[in-house]
Nucleic acid binder design. Structure first.
Lengths: 162, 162
DNA sequence: CTATTTTGCAGGAAAATTTCCTTTTCACCG
DNA sequence: CGGTGAAAAGGAAATTTTCCTGCAAAATAG
């Protein structure tokens, strides 16, 4: 009677599905035909499998990654934030503010001394300082904030390998 | 005589280019036709602009984002690493190892107490422990390692807003 | 063990898209 | 005021997507 503990009853991915995902992760604009050739199938089943995985939520989004410094976002900062009080209201207010800030690419709730880790991008130090003082610290209930500057990107991928 | 300080002499992006990038960032599989409609141009100039931005490196990659927990990668950990010595050789060895490890999605060199910040994904705590002990700590010259566990993802985007 | 249903894939055709070529438009300059 | 060059529009061929039909293998039932 008991089913496997899955959130939305994902139909389980077979080896071919994973192979398709591998190719799509590397190139979201790959044609069905190319993918089909890669997994040794015709276009039809590949198309159906992709559609199924889009609908089941396995595939979240197709995105284009840009060269940040070439579009004027050359500075990356990891930013730690703790709130002064941890009421539901304070947390919701903070989250709402963060979601609206385009400088913040990532916000994680973490274990340890701080409550949140933010990945922030800016054009330069002036812009980051403005963000820090006038936007981030201006959110009510924000307590301690600590910035760690990213000096170099060694690796940056989204490829999940199964 | 002096030029703008650009790495590879990017031809400078106009308002329409940025609008195209905005749409492509949101949906890498958008058709040229859809994008053209979005920027009120015909397909031809849009196609040319995209090709130009691909070649100039402004567009880095088209990728597909997956639902990590639906493909069995439900645990995310931020991992700080410092090396015991900071010779060129030690650093290169570490970097080489990290690039080969599929669990590591991101590796940044940072200011502060630690040398590197790693974003690591794993199926569960067992798998992460195995990574920590047998893979990460096994790299020669790795000194202090500290793990911070991600309890929740508030925001995760790649959309650079200009 | 055979019949039947189901599932997944191949092949083909219509619709849509990409991509290339030619023509047109517009702005700038002589 | 026409010349020149850059960028966009329009059109057409090639490619791709997407849907349909049919077939084969596996699963299920009798």
């Amino acid at each position: 009677m008991a089913k496997a503990p899955q959130k939305e009853e994902t139909p389980a991915l077979d080896r071919i599905d994973l192979e398709i995902l591998k190719l799509l992760q590397q190139n979201a604009r790959a044609t069905i035909k190319e993918i089909a050739a890669g997994v040794h199938l015709s276009t039809t089943p590949v198309h159906e499998r992709i559609k199924r995985m889009e609908e089941s939520g396995v595939i979240r989004q197709y995105v284009t990654l840009l060269n940040a410094s070439k579009v004027g976002k050359g500075l990356m900062v990891i930013c730690y934030v703790s709130l002064r009080q941890h009421s539901r209201h304070a947390g919701d207010k903070f989250i709402k503010s963060i979601l609206e800030m385009n400088e913040v690419l990532e916000c994680l709730t973490i274990s340890g001394e701080f409550d949140f880790l933010l990945k922030v991008v800016a054009a330069n130090m002036d812009e980051y300082y403005h963000f820090h003082v006038n936007k981030l610290s201006a959110i009510e209930n924000v307590g301690n904030v600590q910035s760690v500057f990213v000096m170099g990107v060694i690796k940056q991928t989204h490829q999940l390998v199964f």
